[in-house]
Write a protein that binds this DNA or RNA. Structure first.
Lengths: 398, 398
DNA sequence: AAACTTATGGTGATTGACAAACAAAAGTAA
DNA sequence: TTACTTTTGTTTGTCAATCACCATAAGTTT
């Protein structure tokens, strides 16, 4: 009779790699302490990781009175990752090293409503240009991460996205994979293309690369639309159908028609979308949320007033979020958040006034640290985490 | 130098116990399949669990063509658990077996505003009466679970509870432990007293004992006040300060003063609290939320109207919750939920109208299955899970 | 009753992780 | 230079878990 294989020999290699690539450990002593494995086991697993090229020696650390410990680092140069942050009206792409540090990037004003063909072909062409710029081949790509402004299922297929109906049912990994690795089918076989909501990759970027590694936090993205990525217990929370964090379409009592075909959504009165409409009515020449943010930074009176008012409305919704989630941090990002002061001030004003004392006592409301790069870095991190998942690495070295 | 002890011999016993006590496995074959351990290891661990009296043989199961497998069951009769569900205006207590099945229960209209002394002394006296009724001693008690209508920290101490200011800083485990095991200090040493929010124990009860074992769900408690327990990824979610799920004090646009000293809270217009005030103004004689539910069940026109209206208002708040959390199920409980139809109809009406299509497509809004027992059963389950935690059991048998 | 199926108990060999000990390496402090 | 500290490499015996058998138990099917 066929017997089950023994339970993963070499288990633990993945655990060590995770400790190293997340920067929690760099020496053998660190690894022994944090992993709980025996020193001999750690040494053996380190050899396997070195041999597989997943880590590299990184010189000696300073002595603490005796022989200085040898340090190890994640081998971030053994290939590249591609990250795309497809927003509702603006798209950014980047080539990063394997640790999701940006090597080259570019961006464009693209409307997702133009459909998957237009947007995804720009994205794949931009990937190719960036690869050439950093002197890498398509064969150096180890993974691709993509963020889209709508809900996706487990396989990366869009499901009933409200603002991009043309994309319904589109499998982004399939399309991207085919476009990138065309004519070299066997090449794309092992290169994962991972897709998630734009707000989720932004949250992931801020969490892992932006220094906001808090267990319970909300990352708000304010641009033409409004959305939120939720980090719950240290993990991205997606909800039962991947639709969680839909801040922009909470009903806020007004009756403005929204682009989602409903009425009274937060976006319809506080999104960049609504501000742009008001400014155009007043004779301004604005097209993107970046235009609005620029006007606000220059101190344009009317824009500052509108942005601050939008901040207050968003703050009302966030006060509810604070009551329900009780996060320790709210990170405010998105193109409109580049307006900084007026928006943050409006949000803070209302949240601290409205939220219950306990939930808001230690609450911090801060801007993103990665700024407009949060999305692309997060997208790269998404596939990075898939590639270097502890169990996957342990199994591969077993 | 002192060396670390070897990493938990006999590991895995706790895993097997968990599989057995949660009903996922009852035969050796099940255990081997679900745990991944070798058959010999499972046999050895089972012996240890049997010897420790944690499980008992439960006869043979039906044959499937050969020798019938021997089954094992959690030894639920080796002691008792105590569960208390302290609500804002009503308190229930129960003695349960070790699997949190109720053996005896009682209840009383108690106002938490009367202070911790009054409430907790009634609770401990009720525990003593119930123990006598089922013929058990205080020494048979293996653990105590308590739910309170306010936020608690990790040690079971109340922190800034809005509706019970007298309880601020009170350590419930300390008080209960002292009152229950007075004069027998050594006895209470190993008997854990675990405390959580009332909505959280209710959610736990519905999840583990009510057949609602869904990964992402919201359990709403509607009584004199309104609150929600959140199950996120299969676990109770408490937030950064334990204040998550504060549905009752979301601001809903009105300007009614609330008992929490703010204005415009959901509770102030939709809580049993607000309905009672309206009914009293109309000349009704109502005191508790059970009175209101009774009137509604009898079909009293005015009460049904008010309850349905409250349901709509709660539905508005829940529509926001659905957008943010995207749960698969909303469980509606609490004393006022005993009014059933009018309340549920009001909630459903608004949630399905307002929530985004995707998030509400497969959403189910259903009443509790445990009814008024959800809290006490959940409280017992809370300490049950602490007592029979896999790691704790593995360590104890190692 | 005989053949078959499934479950259980026990044994021995193998394997992998661990603790402990020792030696060597590479720094600092006196 | 010498003594000391810390890190690293290597080895050895111990222990626990697993696998692979074999024997037995207790049903069902023929």
């Amino acid at each position: 009779m066929v017997k089950k294989r023994a339970a993963v020999p070499r288990a633990g290699a993945g655990t060590l790699l995770t400790l190293i690539r997340t920067g929690r450990a760099s020496t053998r002593a660190d690894l022994v302490r944090l992993s709980g494995f025996a020193r001999s086991t750690v040494a053996q697993r380190l050899d396997a990781l070195l041999e597989a090229g997943l880590i590299v020696p990184a010189g000696d650390a300073g002595s603490t009175g005796g022989r200085p410990p040898e340090t190890f680092a994640f081998n971030r140069h053994a290939g590249v990752l591609l990250g795309a942050d497809i927003g509702g009206s603006h798209t950014r792409v980047a080539v990063t090293d394997l640790a999701a540090d940006v090597l080259a990037e570019t961006e464009a004003d693209l409307d997702v409503a133009d459909g998957p063909d237009a947007v995804l072909s720009w994205v794949t062409e931009a990937f190719a240009r960036l690869l050439a710029r950093v002197g890498r081949e398509i064969s150096d790509v180890r993974g691709v991460g993509v963020g889209v402004p709508g809900p996706v299922d487990g396989t990366g297929r869009l499901v009933s996205p409200p603002i991009m109906p043309d994309w319904d049912g589109v499998s982004v990994p399939e399309r991207v994979s085919r476009a990138l690795f065309k004519g070299a089918e066997e090449m794309g076989e092992d290169v994962p293309v991972v897709v998630d909501r734009d707000v989720n990759i932004m949250a992931l970027g801020e969490q892992k690369a932006g220094g906001h590694d808090h267990a319970d936090m909300v990352v708000v993205k304010i641009g033409i639309g409004i959305g939120a990525g939720l980090i719950v217990g240290g993990e991205i929370y997606r909800g039962a159908q991947g639709a969680a964090g839909d801040l922009g379409h909470l009903r806020r009592g007004t009756d403005e028609p929204c682009r989602c075909d409903n009425r009274g959504c937060l976006e319809a009165t506080a999104g960049g979308w609504a501000i742009r409409r008001r400014l155009v009515e007043l004779g301004y020449d604005v097209r993107t949320s970046q235009d609005i943010a620029r006007l606000a930074r220059r101190g344009d009176h009317e824009t500052v007033r509108l942005v601050r008012q939008a901040g207050r409305l968003i703050g009302e919704a966030l006060a509810d979020v604070v009551g329900l989630f009780n996060p320790s941090h709210i990170i405010v990002g998105g193109n409109l958040a580049e307006a900084r002061e007026p928006l943050l001030a409006g949000i803070r004003e209302v949240v601290y006034e409205r939220a219950q004392v306990l939930a808001s006592r230690d609450l911090q409301i801060v801007p993103t640290t990665l700024g407009h790069r949060a999305g692309t870095i997060g997208a790269a991190l998404l596939v990075h985490e898939r590639l270097y998942d502890a169990d996957r690495i342990s199994a591969a070295l077993g």
